[in-house]
Amino acid sequence: MYDQILDVSEKLFMTQGYKETSTRQITEQLNISQPALYYHFKNKEEIYYNVMLRLSEQVERHLREISVREDLDLESKIGRMALFLQRKHPVNLMLMLRDIRQMLSEETAYKIFLLWKKSYKQPFIEVLEQDPFVSREDAELDWIVGQLFVVISTYLETSDKEDELLRSIHLFLYGLLDTRA
């Protein structure tokens, strides 16, 4: 039942947001009672955190599988990682960020931020660190990957724009100017 609660909750949270999702909706979709739900989770915030924990673990595993592939160059790795996020996250990212900042306790918001940093951001940083042509300091790579996520997030809700996402990543990595001239 634990995983079923998380499955239904994830779908609701990712489409409606935290505020608009009620524990009553979750229980109705599962055809269980509120006490049955609270047997597994103490409140809605704990459900949300566990949804995000499970999601981040899945995302990290997949991103790391792509990041260690030796047959892919930098652009291919970043592109495949971004496409994975686009396929895995058909969500309104702005809604999710608003939920985390405004609807959750400071403690839970911070725990989710740490999950995101470890599971989503760190694999991208490591790909850049391992590329011999990338020469930036760790703090700068953290900022750079943050900017890359701004680009990627533009395409998370539009799975029909994979080509545009890949073109945007190419532009992000190589820019407009041809420095060979």
Score class of each variant (00 low, 15 high):
residue 98 R to Q: 14
residue 85 L to N: 02
residue 104 L to W: 11
residue 68 V to E: 04
residue 156 L to Y: 01
residue 50 N to P: 02
residue 66 I to D: 04
residue 164 E to V: 05
residue 68 V to S: 07
residue 105 S to K: 10
residue 163 D to N: 08
residue 103 M to Y: 12
residue 88 K to I: 08
residue 76 S to W: 04
residue 109 A to P: 10
residue 140 E to K: 03
residue 50 N to E: 13
residue 149 F to S: 01
residue 122 Q to R: 10
residue 137 E to G: 05
residue 140 E to Y: 00
residue 97 L to W: 08
residue 141 L to E: 01
residue 88 K to R: 14
residue 62 H to V: 06
residue 151 V to A: 12
residue 162 E to D: 12
residue 57 E to L: 15
residue 60 E to F: 07
residue 157 E to K: 13
residue 57 E to T: 09
residue 55 L to R: 08
residue 161 K to C: 03
residue 66 I to C: 11
residue 88 K to Q: 14
residue 139 A to R: 05
residue 126 E to N: 14
residue 138 D to Y: 13
residue 129 E to L: 15
residue 53 L to D: 05
residue 143 W to Y: 08
residue 51 V to K: 01
residue 114 L to R: 15
residue 123 P to T: 10
residue 128 L to Q: 06
residue 83 L to T: 05
residue 133 F to G: 11
residue 71 D to Q: 08
residue 84 F to V: 01
residue 141 L to H: 00
residue 101 R to C: 14
residue 136 R to E: 14
residue 147 Q to I: 02
residue 152 I to R: 04
residue 73 D to I: 12
residue 67 S to G: 15
residue 68 V to L: 08
residue 93 L to S: 10
residue 87 R to S: 11
residue 75 E to F: 05
residue 149 F to D: 06
residue 60 E to K: 15
residue 156 L to P: 06
residue 162 E to F: 10
residue 52 M to P: 00
residue 51 V to M: 13
residue 48 Y to V: 00
residue 158 T to W: 06
residue 136 R to M: 11
residue 117 K to D: 08
residue 99 D to F: 13
residue 154 T to I: 10
residue 158 T to C: 10
residue 105 S to V: 08
residue 161 K to A: 12
residue 49 Y to L: 07
residue 155 Y to R: 09
residue 96 M to S: 12
residue 137 E to P: 02
